[in-house]
């Protein structure tokens, strides 16, 4: 199934440029004609997942996982290459909230940051299969290529001090607009 995002007639470079102008505007634009913001997740699942992802990569002077678009990455892949992990996410997120309600009386997303850290540490111990999946996907989304929805505006590459835009050749999307430096 193709998401409406693929229908947006932007080249990758324009897409990244649009992201630089305003992440919020982009998020709205991406929703397109689809119901809700997500290809697979529902909003409560997304809130819980964001809480976990942001413990795996918290914000410092550079964005957290969810701020860099990691949820978009994971959601898109759950509708595509990672379809096989759908059940693991559905069950894992439900379990995470159940654990959180049992210990703190609220869903994971509603807890304070130190409580969330405690909960995510518990999930790592008690549901390691699910945790390792989310950890891998979070790191992929954050440090991988921006074309998949995470690492918005190549923010992690900038964080690591890599030249952006980098040396490029003659691929078609570069012929439309030459690199800025």
């Amino acid at each position: 199934m193709q998401s409406s995002r693929d229908g947006v007639p932007l080249t990758r470079r324009q897409f990244v440029a649009a992201g630089a102008m305003g992440g919020a505007a982009l998020a709205v634009g991406c929703a397109g004609t689809k119901q809700g913001n997500w290809d697979f997740l529902n909003d409560p699942q997304a809130r819980t997942l964001a809480a976990i992802c942001d413990q795996i990569i918290p914000a410092d002077d550079f964005p957290s996982a969810s701020q860099a678009g990691v949820l978009t990455y994971i959601d898109r892949q759950l509708a595509r290459h990672y379809r096989r992990h759908r059940n693991a996410y559905r069950d894992g997120l439900e379990q995470a909230d159940a654990m959180s309600r049992k210990r703190f009386g609220q869903d994971l997303a509603a807890l304070t940051v130190p409580q969330q850290l405690e909960m995510v540490s518990s999930i790592e111990k008690e549901n390691s299969g699910f945790f390792n999946l989310v950890r891998s996907h979070t790191l992929e989304g954050y440090y991988g290529a921006p074309r998949h929805g995470g690492n918005r505006d190549a923010v992690s590459w900038k964080m690591l001090g890599m030249a952006e835009p980098p040396v490029r050749g003659r691929a078609q999307y570069d012929q439309r607009k030459s690199p800025a430096s």
Binding site: Q55, I57, P58, D60, F62, R135, T138, L139
Partner: peptide, 12 residues
């Protein structure tokens, strides 16, 4: 550590 702020800082 495999995740968290320390992992992010180690990457940096």
């Amino acid at each position: 550590p495999r995740w968290g702020l320390k992992h992010k800082q180690a990457m940096r």
